[in-house]
Nucleic acid binder design. Structure first.
Length: 826
RNA sequence: GCCCAAGUGGUGGAAUUGGUAGACACAAGGGACUUAAAAUCCCUCGGACUUCGGUCUGUGCCGGUUCAAAUCCGGCCUUGGGCACCA
């Protein structure tokens, strides 16, 4: 069947819908487990059903679909599923504002976005689709919660937590960016609240070790970000003592400076301060607690403190030093108190100067002695121990371990590893999320819901009261229940789970979405781990960290075999327009629907892959889209021109052909080789497309007289039989149409990736360069297998080179095979 | 402050291991086709000079290593990202 051309090019609308229907009818993208075939699980981060796809989605899914289709053609058993990250605040905010129930709002959005996905022609297995707001899905959130609760990995504690006043809920540490809410950028406050946590800190070491297993499958950048976030440090916990005799432990990474302690500092939230009645101290603590988090984190924030009047004894030398309360000491890190060594810590130095605290030097510069009275800042470099009792004269590096040994022997110190990572705060004071499966009994306290009573279903017929309070707290039907332990009256937990819990295991559920258990074991262990995961880098320390943790827990529970869920990760860049991220507020949004309407999905996809390599940011350009559309038209026209001459006959590999045909044939095989390498090894799709464009340009250079010969028809048929399959992962619809145009009956999506002939992938003649003293002076066409001696001979015999070296002495001749000859003269 | 990227024509970007800088595309200019336009096809396209053969110069800046540097090393500048009172 032929489609007539439009003025622009081709009738993409008819073509695109026709082939999507064929793929759907033939169920070509539905995958089935097959232990005899090599599996490839490809996944893009699933979308939140906001209602509309944006260009970032289009880019993400274009990259993913290219890889999925390519791997299919390479013979892999590919799993390429999609679903919906369907819980979350926007649905609830829409409900409050417009009165639409979150459940309906979400389903409507899914419906619309599904249509958009349809138009893009992404090769998903839609039979595996699910949304995380489905009780059959989130019941397993609850199940894992119960298992974690049993093991002490899910627990409730009162702590100073991040509170977003705009979202009206608490946030995990990872969800606070520079003191602001990651979602709405409101000022985050600190509140003392009792909240549910997942003990991700138990897995800190595993998460770090796992990075080695990921190797070069993950971008170095992401691994570094996670490593920094986890923030492992090694040091010593030292039991100082209060004058009253109580233990006063601190953690330090600089045990070598412990003889230089001249004061101690304690966090304002520390319970020890409850006994200090001094009004100046009380006032300081109150002022501190009311500060928004941004102010506390601010750069210029002065280090402030007040002397508590308490004294602390240094177990190493018996020194008695004052204890300050300070605004820079964190309750959540270490023991919430520090030893301060002003001589060797910049911050302590500034603090000591401010409050007139003495400075004691314990590490001296090798060679020249430092003097406390003339020091203008702390000495933080390595040196030699002084004023350190038995350790005097040791290098400070050596002293670190000697002093640690000493403290451990004496029993007042212990080596310790500390992490910056905090436990994951997972409860949210909002409605549209997975209920936490806990009930509160007046007699028995908090009790986990019994496993057989799962799921705890989130009611969907809810009424909002015009504010962000969760409707659950007014719903007696939901709240009133009985205690699983004593059977007495009890109340349900009304907090829901962080939606990052939902997205921490959805990838495993895709392997067996219809299973009545959490997973079908055979399926999950056949498909997992995800071979290639694709998404934005903004999730480096959010979703990607949580998901790794969660998968390790699932592994420990015995429900999945793999430890790491994502073998390879590709972090695609943002879509930029006029130098800024596309956003409503900047007014620089390009609507994917409009682009697809005007140019078709193939053009939209091609542009996304051609404009920039996947990891880099992509600059949107209307003209660039135009160019991609033009290229598709160019291919279309050249295929149309020769389609009637298509033949199944092929020239033998060694067939003697005219110069033009032979050159074209070699261009074809060269292109196949390079394109395969660019896609498979380099993940650099823009250069792969550039090579395909060159091949098409070469087709346009072929004289009609050559094309019309019997050999010409055979060579052109050979070109199309490989060119069109190579185009298929980039522009699948139009490629399928052109394939059919040649008379092929089988679907192109089921064709294998074309294989090139090595002997035909090398040009007959290459150009080498002759240099004199490193400057290009001449060139010559030669056979590609030319010897070094012959290259040198040709260079020296070259007329122009002769002119340049005449009367000079040849010092050296460097020959780079197949590239150049450099003649060094003086 | 610390750590990590990046900086190449008018623009997006190529250059895979130190070996012809600027592939491919956009924009611009010219030509062909056309009554004309659009579309299409072809050609030119870093800068300066040029006797039109070429010559010099050029990958953020300064220096170095090398026969040869966008690529390696040292120092600096700019942009982006991460971490930042983590004891």
């Amino acid at each position: 069947m032929r489609c007539s051309m439009t003025e622009r090019g081709y009738l993409f609308k008819d073509i695109e819908s026709k082939w999507r229907k064929r793929w759907e009818d033939d169920r070509v993208f539905e995958s089935r487990r097959d232990p005899d075939r090599k599996k490839y699980y490809l996944l893009e981060m699933f979308p939140y059903p906001s209602g509309r796809l944006h260009m970032g989605h289009v880019r993400n899914y274009s990259i993913g679909d290219l890889m999925a289709r390519f791997k299919r053609m390479r013979g892999y058993n590919v799993l390429h599923p999609i679903g919906w990250d369907a819980f979350g605040l926007p649905a609830e905010n829409a409900a409050i504002k417009e009165g639409i129930p979150p459940f309906r709002w979400t389903l409507d959005n899914i419906g619309h976005m599904k249509e958009q996905f349809g138009k893009l022609g992404v090769s998903y297995d839609w039979t595996r689709e699910f949304a995380t707001c489905d009780p059959n899905y989130y019941r397993w959130n609850q199940w894992v919660f119960l298992k974690m609760y049993e093991r002490g990995l899910a627990y409730k504690k009162k702590a100073s937590v991040n509170w977003c006043p705009s979202c009206n809920t608490v946030l995990a540490n990872e969800q606070v960016v520079d003191g602001l809410c990651w979602r709405c950028e409101s000022n985050v406050l600190q509140k003392e609240l009792e909240q549910w946590f997942f003990k991700i800190t138990d897995y800190a070491e595993d998460l770090l070790k796992g990075h080695d297993e990921l190797g070069d499958g993950w971008p170095e950048r992401v691994v570094t970000m996670q490593r920094n976030w986890i923030g492992r440090s090694t040091g010593l916990t030292v039991k100082f003592r209060l004058e009253s005799g109580e233990d006063f432990p601190i953690y330090t990474t600089r045990p070598d400076t412990v003889f230089g302690v001249t004061f101690m500092v304690i966090a304002p939230e520390h319970s020890l301060l409850d006994r200090v009645g001094d009004p100046r101290v009380r006032e300081f603590i109150e002022r501190f607690k009311s500060q928004p988090l941004v102010d506390r984190l601010s750069d210029e924030k002065e280090k402030e403190g007040v002397d508590t009047g308490l004294k602390v004894i240094n177990p190493f030398n018996g020194d008695i030093v004052p204890l300050y309360v300070g605004n820079f000491v964190l309750m959540e890190y270490g023991t919430g108190a520090i030893m301060a060594v002003p001589a060797h810590d910049t911050r302590d130095f500034a603090f000591a100067k401010k409050y007139g605290i003495p400075v004691k030097l314990v590490i001296d510069r090798p060679g020249e002695s430092l003097s406390v009275s003339t020091m203008e800042d702390a000495y933080v470099e390595d040196g030699v121990c002084v004023n350190s009792g038995p350790f005097d004269g040791l290098g400070n590096r050596e002293a670190m371990s000697k002093i640690s040994d000493y403290a451990e022997e004496k029993g007042f110190g212990k080596r310790a590893v500390t992490y910056r990572l905090r436990d994951w705060l997972i409860s949210r004071q909002r409605y549209w999320g997975c209920p936490i499966p806990v009930v509160y009994c007046d007699k028995c306290g908090p009790q986990p819901v019994k496993e057989e009573e799962l799921p705890v279903v989130l009611p969907t017929d809810v009424e909002f009261r015009g504010d962000s309070r969760s409707p659950l707290i007014f719903m007696d039907d939901f709240i009133k229940t009985s205690c699983p332990k004593c059977g007495g009256a009890a109340r349900r937990e009304t907090d829901t789970m962080d939606t990052f819990v939902d997205s921490s295991w959805y990838f495993a559920k895709f392997t067996s979405p219809k299973s009545s258990g959490m997973f079908d074991q055979e399926e999950v262990n056949y498909w997992m781990p995800v071979d290639q995961y694709i998404g934005g880098i903004e999730h480096a320390c959010l979703h990607l960290l949580y998901a790794r943790f969660f998968n390790m827990v699932l592994n420990d529970l015995g429900v999945v075999n793999c430890r790491e869920p994502f073998t390879r990760l590709l972090t695609q860049g943002m879509v930029i327009k006029e130098g800024a991220k596309m956003s409503k507020s900047k007014g620089n949004i390009v609507d994917p629907d409009k682009i697809i309407e005007e140019y078709g999905a193939d053009t939209a996809r091609l542009f996304m892959l051609f404009a920039s390599p996947p990891e880099k940011d992509l600059d949107w350009s209307d003209k660039g889209v135009e160019g991609c559309s033009r290229f598709i038209g160019r291919v279309w026209r050249v295929v149309s021109k020769y389609a009637a001459d298509y033949t199944a006959e092929r020239c033998a590999a060694e067939a003697a052909l005219s110069d033009e045909l032979r050159a074209l044939r070699i261009e074809l095989h060269r292109t196949m080789k390079i394109v395969t390498h660019d896609i498979e090894e380099r993940l650099q799709y823009n250069t792969a497309i550039a090579r395909l464009m060159e091949l098409v340009n070469a087709l346009y250079q072929l004289p009609d007289s050559e094309a019309a010969t019997p050999d010409g028809k055979k060579v052109l048929s050979e070109v199309f039989d490989s060119l069109i399959p190579m185009l298929s992962p980039f522009v699948p619809h139009v490629a399928e149409e052109m394939w059919a145009m040649l008379g092929h009956k089988e679907l192109l999506v089921n064709q294998p990736w074309p294989a090139y002939i090595e002997a035909l992938s090398v040009r007959d003649e290459i150009e080498i360069v002759f240099q004199v003293n490193g400057k290009n002076r001449s060139k010559a066409p030669v056979a590609p297998d030319i010897s070094k001696d012959e290259m040198e001979r040709l260079a020296l015999a070259d007329q122009r080179i002769g002119d340049f070296i005449a009367g000079k002495q040849v010092v050296k001749v460097i020959v780079v095979p197949g590239k150049l000859v450099n003649i060094v003269v003086k």
